[in-house]
Simulated scan of single mutants.
Amino acid sequence: MPRKVSHVSPADHDIVTAAVADAERHTSGEIVTVIAAKSNDYDDVALVWASVIAFIAMSVIALFPEFYRGLYDRFTGGWGHELTANQWLGTVIAVGVLKWIGVWLILLWRPLRLWLTPRAILAGRVRARAVDLFKVGTEAKTLGRTGVLLYVSLKEHRADIVADEAIAAKVAPDVWGDAMATLIERIRAGQPGEGMAEAVRQMGVVLAQHFPKGDDNPNELPDRLIEL
């Protein structure tokens, strides 16, 4: 039986669910909230770092061969035989391979891998994951195309908002800036539930301005916080 995912406390679930329900009392918009541990494993980033370090190591040996030949002689006590060109090339390649494996093993530690990932890549991967989740669970799931997804990725300390076409046509992405700023600030303070709830409240204000509550407006998407 798979282990239940739990990134936040039951109290946080209640806070976010209540915030979504309250926000939707004043708008025909439908807010979906999702929180995940991470958006990507960044295996390609580790691969690039390992390859770069290995290439640099081999390049340094190639640029300063006499220095490294001297190290070889000191290591063998002067009793080692003179390496042929092919043997020297094989040694350089072996050093590169060992460097590659060493860096790859070090970067199996996820916090370091995340730290070495450029901010633009982190933001891009979080955005891509948010869009994927939006397409699966929110896009075109409401009659008026008024669904909006609030996505939080904890390891990256990043979040994103993706809106359906009716909302995107009236609300520019930068309008969500205050909600996002509040959310990120609370996440960094270790309060993801409070941050998401406050972001939802601010999103609700924006949605109520452009999509006020109608007479016939069923609850088409779940109010509960979804954990991945």
Rank of each mutant, 00 (worst) to 15 (best):
M203I: 05
P212C: 11
D215K: 14
M203W: 00
A199L: 04
P212G: 11
A197K: 10
V200K: 01
A199G: 12
A208T: 01
D215R: 15
E194D: 15
R201M: 09
A208D: 03
A199F: 05
L207H: 00
P212W: 11
G193C: 09
D216W: 12
E220H: 03
V200D: 01
E198Q: 15
P218H: 07
N217Q: 12
E198G: 05
G195D: 06
D215G: 12
G214Q: 15
E198N: 14
G214V: 10
N219D: 15
K213R: 14
Q202S: 09
E194L: 15
M196D: 01
P192K: 06
N219Y: 01
G193F: 02
G204T: 10
P192Q: 07
P212L: 11
P218M: 03
G195E: 08
D216F: 14
P192A: 04
F211I: 01
N217W: 11
K213N: 10
Q209K: 13
P212N: 11
M196R: 09
E198M: 12
E194M: 13
V206C: 03
D216P: 02
Q191F: 10
P192R: 03
V200R: 03
Q209M: 11
G190N: 05
D216Q: 13
G195M: 07
N219P: 02
E194A: 15
Q209A: 14
E194C: 08
M196K: 09
M203V: 07
H210Q: 09
P218A: 10
P218E: 05
E194H: 14
G193R: 01
Q191D: 10
Q202N: 11
A208M: 01
A199C: 05
G190S: 09
Q209P: 02
E220C: 01
R201V: 10
G190P: 01
G190Q: 07
A208S: 13
G190M: 07
A197S: 15
E194V: 15
P192I: 03
E198A: 15
Q191I: 04
D215F: 13
P218K: 04
P218V: 02
Q191P: 00
P192M: 06
P218D: 02
H210A: 08
K213Q: 11
E198I: 10
V206T: 10
A199P: 07
V206E: 04
A208G: 04
N219A: 11
G193W: 02
A199R: 00
V205Q: 12
G195L: 09
G193Y: 07
A208Q: 05
R201Y: 05
V200I: 14
P212F: 10
M196G: 06
V200M: 06
E198P: 08
K213V: 12
G214L: 13
V206W: 00
N217Y: 10
N219R: 10
P212K: 12
G204L: 04
F211C: 06
P218F: 08
H210W: 09
G193D: 08
P212R: 12
D215E: 15
F211V: 00
M196L: 13
G193N: 01
V200Y: 01
H210T: 06
Q209E: 14
N219S: 08
V205S: 06
F211T: 03
M203E: 02
N217T: 15
V200G: 05
H210F: 08
A199T: 08
E198H: 13
Q191S: 08
A208I: 09
